[in-house]
Amino acid sequence: MQPRSPEPTRRPGPPPIAGPRRFAGPPTSFIVITVAVVQIVGTLFSASHQDAPRPLDGLAILLLLAGPAGLALRKRAPQVMLPVALVATGAYLALGYAWGPIVLSFALAIVLTAAAGLRWQAWAGAAIAAAAVVAGSAMTGDENWPVRASAGVAWAAILVLLGQGFRRRSERFAEYRRRREEAQKAERDEYRLTLARDIHDVVAHSLSMINVQASVALHVGADDPEKLRPALEAIKAASKESLTEVRQLLGVLREDVPLAPAARPTLARVPELVRNAQVGGLRVMLEDNADHPGAGPAQQEAAYRIIQEALTNVGRHSGAKSAVVRIAQTDRELEVTIDDDGAGMGGALPGNGLTGMRERAVALGGSLTLHNLEPGLRVQANLPIHPEGTRP
């Protein structure tokens, strides 16, 4: 019987690193140009219907453009926006030019300053604007000046609160994005860990079989040449299948997975593992009287890989002559036990194989434990069986 290595399990590719980018608002250049056009055109139109103490001149146009120019610094130097807009607006009104939408750049500067996190500067600018409105309304002598002053103060506060609302929204989105990236990173790490376990299980098992068969060939080659050919044929078959599986795993890494994925190994293939181990001279007994109707594909694959790795370790490291594989199932769990009569762990630290076995069990909500025997070692895995459609 020629050894046959298990086919690798196909895994979905890792999740994308970055999701769709959020809309960060209109470009700064669009804001600057739009505000400048509105202030210039709106003021020229308003001036044609007013008797202003001072006609519009070059200085007025310069002040109308200074506020929008300050908004251009909203990302590089946001602390400069509000002072520039405040000085430009105050100078324009103080010089007696025609009233118009000159306050638009100042209002946007308050909003953008609060949105940039400069809360106290925004409140200070709003307070100055509110004081100017109250003073200007009182000096007009109008009987309704308290109403106008109150409206101006309310609008100044609303502008700051509006900017703070934009700021909080941006912070919440940044927190959501950070959590999403952390979740994606955890998924990618789990994907790499799963792929590493598959590579170890497939390659280590195949190379172990090649090593065992080569040892058999060297042992029987001199005494019984007729037994040499089957051993060499087994080496050739195992190496060929190993190369095929390595190419398939590399295809997964390149995201070049074939359209027809390989089937996941099940407990029905455990006798094949036992026969492969027996070819290498290890006496293996399999005790499995259940049909495993409740064990899902994930539980069966994990049990298969654990048995595969345990038998590989027995053949390579323990020096055992015999092993017993027991598979038992209850309504709640699938129990797998591998006993051998070898040297046990011998104080050695667990390698990648034992770590991978434990990770497979824990991923399903189960456990994997090692028990020293006299002599030998017991590897015991308990895999919970969950109702269909549920996860651990």
Rank of each mutant, 00 (worst) to 15 (best):
A157H: 08
W99D: 15
T9I: 12
A343E: 13
A237K: 10
G366W: 02
I61Y: 14
V35N: 02
P6C: 11
T390P: 00
A237R: 11
E182Y: 06
L370V: 08
S29I: 13
A310M: 07
V41K: 02
R192A: 13
S239N: 06
A77N: 09
P26V: 14
D340I: 04
A183P: 00
I128A: 14
P258M: 14
V134M: 13
V314Q: 10
R54N: 09
R332A: 12
L86Q: 10
I306G: 00
P293L: 13
R192L: 14
A116Q: 05
K321P: 07
D57L: 10
A85T: 14
P20F: 11
L249Q: 11
Q380K: 13
R305H: 07
D339V: 06
P3E: 07
S137C: 08
G365T: 06
K75S: 10
V153Y: 02
P15R: 11
H205A: 12
L253P: 01
F166P: 07
P78R: 08
A263V: 15
A237F: 04
V336R: 00
V134S: 12
L259Y: 09
E255H: 10
P15E: 10
F30G: 08
L63Y: 01
R360G: 04
E241D: 15
L93I: 09
L193W: 00
A295N: 07
A154P: 07
A277F: 00
S367Y: 02
A130R: 02
T9Q: 11
S206G: 15
P26W: 10
P27T: 05
G315L: 10
G125W: 06
G353R: 01
A24T: 13
D201F: 04
V257K: 13
L267W: 00
H386G: 04
I235Q: 08
E335F: 01
A135P: 00
G70P: 05
E226A: 15
G67P: 06
G356D: 12
Q380F: 09
G351P: 02
Q39S: 10
P387F: 01
F23G: 01
Y176E: 14
A348V: 12
V202E: 05
L349M: 12
V324S: 10
D142V: 09
E245V: 11
H219Q: 15
R360P: 00
E226H: 11
A126G: 09
Y97L: 04
A217S: 09
E187Q: 15
K185G: 10
V103C: 07
S367K: 06
S242P: 01
A298R: 09
R4A: 11
L56E: 04
P6R: 09
R247F: 14
D340F: 02
R119D: 07
L108A: 08
A231M: 03
D201T: 08
L228V: 12
